[in-house]
Design a binder for these strands. Structure first.
Lengths: 246, 246
DNA sequence: AAAGGCAGTATGTCCTATCAAGAGAACATG
DNA sequence: CATGTTCTCTTGATAGGACATACTGCCTTT
């Protein structure tokens, strides 16, 4: 049917053209201008409508396909998938997640030290023997309710940090300000039973269910920057994600 | 430095050139020929060495960057990141995961019915009122040990299935054979305590920790194909994934 | 000797072109 | 009327060129 979306492309903007197209189509989908299931014009026409070359148009659509918003079929066309799926799991901190949702997280630093890393940490962060790391545990609450108990180890040769900073903002915000560009993280999500140490801090019963996460984050130079072991109250937190088939 | 990798590109192969390059570099990294941290030649030289155009070379490297194996910096070059990170979480079934790891999973179908969907399922699968679905629960064991208890609802207008099939192979294999091309899935991972029903089936104590997963899968036409609620023994299973910053 | 600017190099963006391949409909033929 | 072929539409793959921009290190200048 040829859904001709009228996007405005600003060629003087520093934002790459293909990205402007991505944003435009994304907005059109989320606002309902492009309905789920509807077919888009073919690449060539779309490119012509926006006065772009086909490769540029394709690059934009590529991103949207990867994001799971569009589906392309050779010989057929491109259509909007967009069930109300969430954004694929991104590399963000819990603090960011909560802040973005309008909640006001508070952080209580339970312990903080700058010590020589133990063997496990040396391995996890791939540091030479004798390296020092920041080691701290934090309790995160939202609306006064405990949500997460977090233990982290951070290499100390990137940026310095102290207890006061950690109680004011998220770890990732501090590291990013220190010049760290996160590239990837590997994490493992599981479950466990609250023990005598965790339960009172999280204001939960001993024996109640906790979600566990272990994560190691890598920056764009390949350095392992941070590793941590977090536990969350299962009744208040779960991991949502969208998987895209490639 | 200039690490000149000698890949062989087969122009008569049906495999796209850029993908051959992806596979080649991937293999070189995993086999250690390309060491973590080492720099690659620049795109233009690499393209010349392999007799490819720069866009083709770039497309290959794009994929590797997205996969988290390479890092590019404008004005600097491209280097291998590749800490021993795992492949990003993919849209696969537990059965596939286990089979690929050399395990031999067995499936016991605890219940199977073809019934009218209840309100919750209608919503989850976005089906019109009165639609029928397959509803079944399965117990998956590995090496005789119970691992997962799975309850699923599958729309019936795609392919038919029965108890015998489900006990022989994974749900996703059946659906794929029925012509379903999965595109994306949204899932939520959390934790809970084993109850009186789950514990004996999983041969675990009542009150032990379970990992829970709820998933809804969408095919390439935007149809919600399947939704399910699974629980896993926390001592035998966890979700590993790699997040890539984009 | 320190600071600033400049050039070189690499990736980032964007363009024009062309051929290949899959899907589906129209059409011709037995 | 059924079936197989062909034609057309659309995405997929590849090439090659031009210009923009970020980073590094060297060189000049102060």
């Amino acid at each position: 049917m040829a859904n001709q979306l009228s996007l405005s492309i600003d060629r003087s903007s520093p934002v790459p053209l293909y990205h402007q197209v991505v944003q435009g189509i994304e907005a059109a989908i989320h606002s309902g201008i492009l309905e789920p299931g509807s077919r888009l014009d073919n690449e060539i026409d779309l490119a012509a409508q926006l006065n772009l070359s086909r490769p540029t148009m394709r690059k934009a659509m590529d991103e949207l396909v990867r994001a799971g918003l569009l589906v392309r079929k050779r010989g057929v066309g491109t259509q909007v998938v967009a069930s109300q799926v969430r954004r694929p799991l991104e590399l963000s901190s819990l603090y960011d997640d909560l802040s973005n949702n309008g909640k006001k997280p508070t952080t209580e630093v339970l312990s903080f030290s700058h010590v020589e890393a133990d063997a496990l940490t040396l391995t996890a962060l791939q540091l030479p023997a004798g390296s020092k790391v920041y080691h701290f545990t934090r309790l995160r609450k939202v609306g006064g309710k405990p949500l997460a108990l977090m233990e982290n180890w951070v290499r100390d040769d990137i940026t310095s940090m102290d207890e006061a900073q950690l109680s004011k903002e998220g770890l990732y915000a501090i590291l990013r300000r220190g010049g760290v560009n996160f590239r990837l993280a590997s994490q493992r999500i599981g479950a466990m039973i609250a023990n005598d140490y965790q339960a009172p801090l999280l204001e939960a019963e001993v024996g109640s269910a906790l979600v566990t996460m272990e994560r190691t984050a890598v920056d764009d130079t390949g350095r392992m920057v941070e590793t941590g072991h977090h536990v969350y109250r299962a009744d208040s937190y779960s991991f949502e994600m969208t998987l895209v088939q490639r």
